[in-house]
Structures are given as structure tokens and as C-alpha cells.
């Protein structure tokens, strides 16, 4: 009954109370219980204060004489120490149970299903078995938990998608693992939750949970290399591809199926099919793609994407090329 109250629409804004996985559910249940307990305690104390302020205000008895000194009462004090110890003892047991339920053991010996590497300020996402490398756009099949390994390429980041469960730090040099699962299809938002420098605020992550069949076809599409460019060699996309190589884009960005294999920046093989750009900073539209390349230092100041001061024509060509990378 309490849980139902929390799941009503008013709390739909609170992803923590709108869990979409068993693990997140375990946390929200415990949280709801603790919240109710806290409300009772707080109401008790505030109620006592209000009552005392009214009943023992000066002048109520009219005399203004000093009240009788009372120095303590050992039995009462022992009681009000023992009861809180009992309460925190119960909380501790509930903690242990919920820890196991919300963060089941993640084996360290087998290969992970997904590897997420944190960079300043984007997410590198790999599906090792399928040979897929993408960025910022994580897909998982509904109902099948995925073993995720978290790494960092630079500073400490943190992977947090509240509707799916706990957050976990990505510490350089450490390989942390957790289970990721969703019980129903949908798009779930998360963010980096460890201050990682200038653009920590724009390091959003989007998890799309879809049926296993849809997931499989998405994965297969991502595994394909970039489509070969047909058409005349002076068409927009072809010119764009040449600019891509000449203008140092290849020094950071990989496009599988070409000779561009750098891993400093996000893999762009299927960039046109992603929902967002710059880790959630922009919705992925052709206009925004153009804006991003024209002035990255204004859109995401501090980001390592340089402003190459491209001419309008060059921009047109490169955007045309990138739009073919579906």
C-alpha cells in the first residue's frame, strides 16, 4: 500500500521511485520504508517541540520563578539510547538484504557483455562479442541481464541510470562490474555522477531497452562497417569523406570499414543513427550536427573537440558525409 502511494504519478518525476528493474526495485522499496520511518520520527520530534514551546513558555504559571532543576534520569536516558540502537540494528539488517538484492554478484572471470569506458566527457560503449563500438547510446535487451564492465580512460567517472539501479564509479585502473537489466522497454536517462571536469554536466547517458529481437537487429546493424560511398566522387558525401581524412578528424575518430581507426574520440561509424550528440548536449539533427562541428567550443566549452573554423562549404560536405554513417 505504501509502495503504491509512492508509485503514483506525482513521483513519476522521481526515477528512483520508478524502478524498471528488480535491482532498482529493491532499493526503492527500502527507501520508501525508511522515508516513512523518518517522517514519523521527525513528526514526533517537531510535535514534541511545538508542545513543549506552548506548555512551558515563560509566564504560563504566572510566577516567573525558576523551575525545579532536574539533572537527568538514567533509566530514561538508557531507554532512549537503547531504542535507537534497536532501530538502527533493524536498518542494518535491511541494508544487508537490500545490498544483495540490488547488487547481485558480478563474476570477475567471464567476459563482460558490455564494456563502458568513461572519457572526459562521453561514453565509449563496446559489445566485445559482436565487435561493436559506439558512443553514448547504450542498448540492452529487455528481461536479460547484461554483465557490464566499467572502466575509465582518464579521471573518475560514475555510471548512474536511476531507474535501472545503483551507481558505480569508473576509476582509472579499476575494472568494476555490475549487472544491468530492464523489465520493460523504454528509454532511460542517466548521467555521470562523479565530478570529472569542465563538462561533467553534459555527460548524459541514454539506455534503450528493447525486445531481444529488436536488440539483436540493432546490434547487427552496429556491427556492420560504414556503408561504402556510392555516387560521383565530387558529390557532397565523397568530398566530405576526403575532408574527414585531411582535416585531422581521423586523428581522433574511427569509422569502421575505412582506414580511420583512432580511439581518442567517439567512434562515428553509425553516428547518424544516434539520438543525441555530444553525450546528450544536442538532439541529433542535421542542423545540430552542423552546429556542433561549426562551434563546439561554444556549445560544450572545455570539450576536447576542437573548433577547426571550417568554411560553410566544408561544413556542408562533412555533414553530408556523416549523415551517410547510419
Amino acid at each position: 500500500m505504501i509502495r503504491a502511494w509512492f508509485l503514483q504519478p506525482r513521483f513519476g518525476l522521481m526515477p528512483i521511485f520508478h524502478p524498471i528493474s528488480q535491482q532498482a526495485h529493491a532499493i526503492s522499496e527500502l527507501f520508501a520504508f525508511v522515508l516513512v520511518l523518518s517522517a514519523v520520527v521527525f513528526a514526533g520530534i517537531v510535535g514534541a517541540l511545538i508542545y513543549i514551546m506552548w506548555r512551558f513558555r515563560r509566564g504560563r504559571d504566572g510566577s516567573g520563578a525558576e523551575p525545579r532543576p532536574v539533572f537527568g534520569h538514567s533509566r530514561i536516558e538508557i531507554l532512549w539510547t537503547a531504542i535507537p540502537i534497536g532501530i538502527v540494528g533493524v536498518l542494518f539488517v535491511l541494508t544487508l538484504v537490500a545490498m544483495r538484492a540490488s547488487d547481485p554478484d558480478a563474476p570477475a572471470d567471464r567476459a563482460p557483455d558490455i564494456t563502458v569506458v568513461g572519457h572526459q566527457w562521453w561514453w565509449e560503449i563496446r559489445y566485445p562479442a559482436a565487435g561493436v563500438v559506439t558512443a553514448n547510446d547504450l542498448h540492452i535487451p529487455v528481461g536479460r541481464k547484461q554483465l557490464v564492465e566499467l572502466q575509465s580512460a582518464d579521471v573518475i567517472h560514475d555510471f548512474w541510470v536511476p531507474r535501472l539501479g545503483r551507481k558505480l564509479d569508473m576509476v582509472p585502473g579499476r575494472h568494476a562490474r555490475l549487472w544491468l537489466a530492464a523489465d520493460s522497454a523504454g528509454t532511460y536517462f542517466g548521467a555521470c555522477a562523479e565530478y570529472c571536469g569542465n563538462e561533467h554536466a553534459w555527460m548524459q547517458i541514454r539506455v534503450t531497452a528493447e525486445s531481444p529481437a529488436t536488440f539483436a537487429s540493432w546490434l547487427a546493424a552496429q556491427a556492420r562497417p560504414a556503408p561504402a560511398l556510392g555516387g560521383p566522387s565530387d558529390s557532397g558525401p565523397a568530398l566530405g569523406a576526403q575532408l574527414f581524412s585531411r582535416l585531422t578528424c581521423v586523428n581522433c575518430h574511427a569509422v569502421r570499414g575505412t582506414s580511420d581507426t583512432a580511439t581518442v574520440g567517439p567512434d562515428l561509424t553509425h553516428v547518424a543513427s544516434r539520438p543525441s550528440l555530444a553525450a546528450g548536449r544536442l538532439v541529433n539533427t542535421p542542423e545540430n550536427l552542423r552546429r556542433w562541428m561549426a562551434e563546439p567550443d561554444l556549445i560544450k566549452p572545455g570539450s576536447y573537440m576542437p573548433n577547426l573554423h571550417l568554411s560553410d562549404q566544408d561544413l556542408d560536405h562533412i555533414v553530408a558525409y556523416l549523415l551517410t554513417l547510419r
Partner: peptide, 19 residues
Amino acid sequence: GISGVMVAVVPIDWQVTDS
């Protein structure tokens, strides 16, 4: 202090820490 006790409960902290 109450919100502190809440985050002493590890799974709650796993959601709300750094928020």
C-alpha cells in the same frame, strides 16, 4: 541527521550519493 541515516543505508546511498 535523518537524511544522514538514510544514506548510511548502502543501497539508498548507491542511488542518491553524488546527487
